[in-house]
């Protein structure tokens, strides 16, 4: 009994140690996206370049698609554009862009879409254009439905239109090799 009593503080101390040790290496910003394992949210938005064209979520079905949420104002998006272009060319990946304006910029007043189009053309011409088309999320409702916290963010959508993978930040070679490629191959074979 005496020995057992001695064990209690030792075991407690060990548990506290494990708790704090785990906390030391856990990333508090690594919050699971709530849209994961759900159907891609419904939307009906204009194409960024040809506004008469209405795009919906049904167009994402049938082929594994990478949905990339981005904006010309976003610096990390610049970094990942060349690699995404490479994915499109080499892996024949279908990449659809969701373009959204920076909320802080938009708060200053209406955004000029023509200016945005010009900027997009310039940026894609300079760094490569990975997109099959871009959806213009004018009121940012789709971004909100997707649970976007910034740009860039990417979602991998399977053939049934379900979100199976999410990435906050850029897509790069290492991430592709380690995570995305195996998943992409698997989903393609399904």
């Amino acid at each position: 009994m005496k020995k057992l009593r001695l064990l209690i503080p030792i075991v407690t101390f060990l548990f506290v140690c494990i708790f704090f040790y785990r906390g030391l290496f856990s990333d508090p910003r690594d919050i699971k996206n709530a849209s994961l394992d759900r159907e891609f949210p419904a939307f009906a938005l204009a194409d960024l370049m040809t506004p008469d064209l209405k795009r919906t979520e049904s167009e994402l079905m049938g082929k594994v698609t990478l949905v990339n949420v981005w904006g010309t104002w976003c610096i990390t998006c610049r970094v990942e554009l060349p690699f995404l272009t490479q994915l499109k060319q080499q892996e024949n990946m279908r990449i659809v862009g969701v373009y959204y304006d920076n909320a802080v910029d938009a708060a200053f007043g209406p955004v000029d879409v023509n200016k945005t189009r010009l900027e997009v053309r310039q940026m894609l011409g300079q760094l490569g254009d990975p997109f099959l088309y871009n959806v213009y999320d004018e009121k940012r409702d789709l971004s909100l439905d997707l649970g976007i916290t910034g740009a860039p963010e990417s979602f991998l959508v399977n053939k049934q239109g379900k979100i199976v993978w999410h990435r906050r930040g850029d897509i790069n070679v290492r991430l592709w090799q380690e995570e995305l490629k195996p998943l992409f191959e698997k989903l393609k074979a399904e």
Partner: peptide, 22 residues
């Protein structure tokens, strides 16, 4: 959702602005 411990009234992050608008 972007900041570690700020409510959306207090934050000026883009996503907080969107959440406030919504």
């Amino acid at each position: 959702p972007k900041c570690q411990n700020q409510n959306i009234a207090d934050s000026n992050a883009g996503v907080a602005v969107d959440l406030k608008n919504k």
